[in-house]
């Protein structure tokens, strides 16, 4: 089968690309840097013997050309069976005082461009069994003084996916959303976390195993569902004093 993975050059996306290619699926891999993409694509071809196309696109300034390229590459594979969107970015400057340019960038990469890519590829995903997989973050469970715009964008993304799931609930298009806890990738590098960072390879195995199932919203690792529930239950008077 054929899948598009946006954000396949590193972290969770790279792990997903290997997992899916090892299972024999052809891929379109997208990210912002041609050097990483080309290296990953040639390695996937050599090790797994599958077709891999690359699309260099910066989600911070996605334009018509980039959207056309990804549409073209997906079409060239001869039918699209899934769109995985593990791209994402954070910023140390993402506080309540962040410059508007930074808020704009974080919102585009983490939400707006995702929505544009989905809209563009939707026609290729309909009329046959297919899947769209989004990736949120536990950072979005409740607003904090850090990761302000990132959390807002991820919450918007989660809502967008909920709407998609509702809209396509009686069709062949399966909409899945993973809310991720700390992952052992560059995004969390050097950050001390209270709970262990999860392995992206393991996550990618879970995603592949679930790809044809109607899983809805999944937490990974699963205990984050419980933590999410507890955090949401904390009364504001107490929550505002927490520093995390």
């Amino acid at each position: 089968m054929n899948y598009v993975i946006v954000g396949a050059s590193a972290g969770v996306g790279r792990a997903l690309a290997y997992q899916f290619a090892r299972a024999g699926h052809n891929l379109v891999v997208a990210a912002s840097d041609a050097r990483d993409l080309e290296a990953t694509a040639s390695d996937l071809r050599i090790r797994c013997g599958v077709r891999v196309e690359t699309v260099v696109m910066d989600l911070a300034r996605i334009d018509e050309t980039a959207l056309r390229q990804i549409e073209q590459a997906a079409g060239d594979l001869g039918g699209l069976h899934g769109l995985l969107l593990p791209a994402g970015t954070v910023s140390p400057d993402d506080t309540a005082h962040a410059a508007s340019g930074e808020i704009d960038r974080l919102t585009r990469v983490n939400y707006l461009s995702m929505a544009s890519v989905i809209q563009r590829l939707l026609p290729l995903l309909q009329g046959h069994p297919a899947v769209i997989v989004g990736f949120g973050s536990v950072a979005a469970m409740r607003g904090r003084g850090r990761n302000v715009a990132y959390a807002a964008a991820k919450r918007a993304l989660e809502s967008f996916f909920e709407s998609l799931r509702h809209a396509f609930s009686n069709t062949d298009l399966n909409v899945q959303f993973y809310v991720l806890g700390y992952m052992n990738t560059q995004m969390a590098f050097g950050i001390r976390t209270l709970l262990p960072k999860a392995d992206p390879d393991r996550l990618s195995r879970v995603v592949l195993a679930n790809i044809a199932r109607d899983t809805g919203v999944m937490y990974y690792p699963r205990y984050w569902r419980f933590i999410n529930w507890v955090i949401r239950m904390i009364p504001w008077q107490l929550y505002k004093r927490l520093n995390f």
Partner: peptide, 10 residues
């Protein structure tokens, strides 16, 4: 450092 992208290294 654990660079995983060329821009982080180069």
């Amino acid at each position: 450092q654990q660079p995983d992208r060329y821009r982080m290294l180069v």
